[in-house]
Simulated assay, not measured.
Amino acid sequence: MKKIINDPATVVTESLRGLAAAHGDLVRVVEDPALVVRADAPVAGQVAVVSGGGSGHEPLHGGFVGPGMLDAAVPGAVFTSPTPDAVQAAVMATAGGAGTLLIVKNYTGDVLNFETAAELAAAEGLDVRSVVIDDDVAVADSTFTAGRRGVGGTVPLEKITGAAAARGDSLDDVEAVARKVIGQVRSIGVALSPPTVPHAGEPSFTLADDEIEFGIGIHGEPGRERIPAEPADALVARMVDAVAGDLPFAEGDDVLLFTNSMGGTPQIELYLAHGIAERLLAERGINVRRRLVGPYITSLEMQGISITLLKLDDELTELWDAPVNTPALRWGV
């Protein structure tokens, strides 16, 4: 294992210190328990939006903290859910008097720990709601989940929900927007190589040089099937078929197309795949109205990509376009 680290036990803490050094104008970092909080939190009178999960998926979630997106992110150890006390601390640090919405990816540890934190915060008199994102079309259940996994759809969910909070929506309305996104977003990922978790020191799984894991999870969980390596046209067509056929997306639909690198895929391949996906969707009569391309929800250094489709309406498009100012996502400011 070759990584730019000192000690596997301190990877997350040292990385968070670097995030604070680079983006101290936007976020502040707490080390015990580990939190990333927007620099001006709490924002009085505004619904707070809080998320989190295991580290190793950067910039998710800490890179999305700031005006127009998350009020706080709770990073666990690599590929490990954060503890309830850390989530509760994030809720307390961002409570502006209008309630809190927790965005939770559908992994068993995340769901249980965020639920416990919500109960603890409620005991302190705070109004805390939770939504669970489960956009992965690859598998119904996995080692980590009961039901579909939360994957690439988490990024547009956090952006759009944060924008609703920023425009002054009530907690009921912010929660309703979040649930609308969850109902209309679907994703699938593929892996060409495994990630290596620092404390494990060896790859999470093995793939032959001529194999691709189709439907991979963001922690290296097995996918829908292991297939022979194939050209990009065929692979992206297989991905688009899986995602577009699930909701299903129909001719005339407006969508956000999010083409994501799992961490080790270079931009030249990512844009190549995105271009193919745009063409295939156009052939179906599906209108790509908004786009996002880049490494926004990764799995350490895994080579691979994911494709996410979100069905848009005028409200969701307006909220996607709204200003955002975070370390990893920034426009309109």
Rank of each mutant, 00 (worst) to 15 (best):
A89W: 12
G99A: 11
L60M: 15
A166L: 05
R129N: 01
S130R: 15
D172E: 15
V137W: 06
G52E: 02
G66I: 12
K159N: 02
S170K: 00
R167Y: 00
S170A: 09
G66Q: 05
A118I: 11
L101T: 06
V65H: 09
A165H: 03
G168E: 03
Q88D: 04
V151L: 15
E175S: 05
D173M: 03
H57Y: 08
D71H: 15
V78K: 02
V155N: 13
F79S: 05
V91L: 14
A140Q: 14
A176V: 00
L112F: 14
G66S: 08
E175N: 01
G54Q: 06
S51L: 01
A93Q: 10
A117R: 06
G63S: 09
S130C: 10
V111F: 10
R129F: 01
V177F: 11
T94M: 08
A123R: 15
L126D: 01
D136F: 11
G153S: 07
A95D: 15
D136W: 08
A123L: 13
T143C: 00
V49E: 03
F64A: 01
G54H: 04
V74S: 02
P84S: 06
A89E: 06
L126R: 15
N106Y: 12
T145Y: 10
L157A: 07
F64K: 08
L70Q: 12
V137N: 02
A121E: 06
H57V: 06
E158C: 04
L120D: 09
D135L: 13
V137T: 11
D110C: 00
D173Y: 00
V128I: 15
R129I: 01
P59Q: 13
L102H: 10
T94I: 10
L120V: 07
F144I: 02
R149F: 05
P67F: 04
H61Q: 10
A90G: 13
S130E: 03
D173G: 00
D172H: 02
T145Q: 10
V151T: 11
V139G: 00
G153H: 07
T83R: 10
E115G: 13
